[in-house]
Amino acid sequence: MGVRDWLGWPVLRQIGAGDPYGRGAAAKSSASEHLAPRTRTAQKVVKSVCPYCAVGCGQNVYVAEGKVTQVEGDPDSPVSRGRLCPKGAASLQLTTGSAREHQVLYRRPHGTEWESLDLDTAMDMIADRVIESRQQGWQWEQSGVRTRRTMGIASLGGATLDNEENYLIKKLFTALGAVQIENQARV
């Protein structure tokens, strides 16, 4: 091992640079010298709220050329003070994730393949099935007590839905007469 190899050791670099704790230039690698923050290219920063739970953590959404490029915690938020949970920190994938579908997919009963449907056809299919299930499971009364409910529909909301979506789903299913309404975030 030559003298040059010894001089490349981090401890010797720190002492030689007058940085014994390795918090300054001695800690930088050649790869990290050329790194730039992803937020530097943003054309604007939009204040937002994390869509996942009821806490309401603040987010800074960085936008460049009309596309979301980064989502970070908002340090000005009195709720989260710049911190996000793992789900909130990954909310960039809501808009830019490669696994995100941009069309309605349908698999017929006993089918093995997915097929694309237009949105109007899918909405009509859903509405027909909801109406039929509601009518088949409707109870006006049970044991002499007026119930006015349907036992043919239940809802289990997912944690990937935001507060507003969960609120609207709860209201919709209550209006339909369903009583079995639950959410994954509460279970």
Rank of each mutant, 00 (worst) to 15 (best):
L7C: 06
E182A: 11
T69S: 06
M125I: 10
G56S: 03
R186C: 06
E164L: 08
C57F: 04
A64F: 01
Q93R: 00
E165W: 04
P37H: 03
R108S: 13
A127W: 09
T95Q: 06
G2W: 02
W138P: 05
D162V: 02
I169M: 15
C57K: 08
E164R: 05
A27V: 05
N60R: 14
A36S: 13
E132V: 07
S30I: 08
S29C: 01
Q93F: 02
E165G: 11
C53Q: 05
A64P: 00
T69Q: 06
R134S: 07
L156C: 07
T69V: 14
T69H: 01
D128R: 12
K87C: 00
A175K: 12
M1V: 00
A154L: 01
K44Y: 04
A122H: 09
G158E: 00
K47L: 12
T150P: 02
D124I: 10
R13I: 11
G144D: 08
G58R: 07
R23T: 15
G73M: 05
I169H: 14
C57I: 08
H34D: 05
A178E: 03
G8M: 15
F173W: 15
S29G: 10
R100P: 04
R148S: 13
C50Y: 00
C50R: 01
Y106S: 08
V45Y: 03
A99H: 11
A25C: 02
K28T: 09
P51Y: 03
S143N: 15
T121R: 08
G73A: 11
I181H: 07
V45N: 03
